[in-house]
Simulated assay, not measured.
Amino acid sequence: MEKVIDQSYYSTIEERETMYTFLKVVFEAPLTIDTLTQWKENFTPAFIDILTIENEALYQSFEKLRNSDLESFEAEEKAAYLATFNVFNESGHIPAPPWESVYVTKDRTMFAEPVFQMRKQWESFGMEIVNKHRVPEDHISIELEFMCYLIDFTREALRLSNKENFVRGIYTQFWLLKDHLNHWVKPFTRDILSSDTSDFYKGVAKLLQLFVEEDVEYMKSIKEVLDHE
């Protein structure tokens, strides 16, 4: 455990948790005035620069947020969210279904094996999703929320010098990335980018794919060190 822990590891924990939390909020529901107000007041230029590196669509969205009326921004992005991700949108068609099962089954069905795999892992940590029979556990926001939980679980194990839980936390994070998020985020992103959604959601989709691809390699390197301890 000691081989993977240095000052950069602590800072990376915070950076990863911040990014996953941001992505979870974006995909779990339409943006609210409260959320937009928090972003406008608390997101520093440096953090926005990190979010929008080589991502012009997302950069322009934050510029629009900075300069526009919150109510109009909220209304536009709510309409975009519902039209892109919500099963009850006006067209009756979901351009970018936010459930893993859709992307790993031949008939693009919901409530397939990923739901039960995710449920089993949540339960193994003594957790249960509220309204689990209404919102499948393989929804993108729930998988991102689970990653946030695992990061916090691993940090707490580190604080308590609990090697068993630390290793468990690292291995489960890698499992979530390798066997789930990295397995379907690319086609999910492709669906978002090919839809008529807003620049904000197209920018966030690019951020999601890039971050997951980078994070799976980072967690792989951490896991490999633990494998050889």
Rank of each mutant, 00 (worst) to 15 (best):
Q7F: 15
Q7S: 13
S8D: 11
S11C: 04
E15H: 12
M19F: 10
Y20C: 08
T21K: 14
K24P: 01
T32Q: 10
D34I: 12
T35I: 15
L36A: 13
K40P: 01
F43V: 09
F43L: 14
T44Q: 04
P45H: 07
A46S: 10
F47A: 04
F47E: 08
D49S: 11
D49G: 08
T52F: 08
T52A: 04
E54G: 07
N55F: 08
E56Q: 13
E56R: 12
E56K: 12
L58K: 07
Q60K: 11
F62I: 02
E63C: 07
E63K: 11
R66H: 05
L70T: 00
S72Y: 14
S72D: 11
E76H: 04
E77I: 13
A79K: 13
Y81E: 03
A83K: 00
A83D: 02
T84M: 02
V87H: 10
F88H: 14
E90V: 15
H93G: 00
H93C: 03
A96K: 04
A96Q: 03
E100Y: 05
S101N: 06
S101H: 04
S101Q: 01
V102S: 02
Y103C: 00
V104C: 06
V104A: 09
V104H: 03
T105L: 06
K106G: 11
K106V: 06
K106R: 11
F111C: 06
A112F: 07
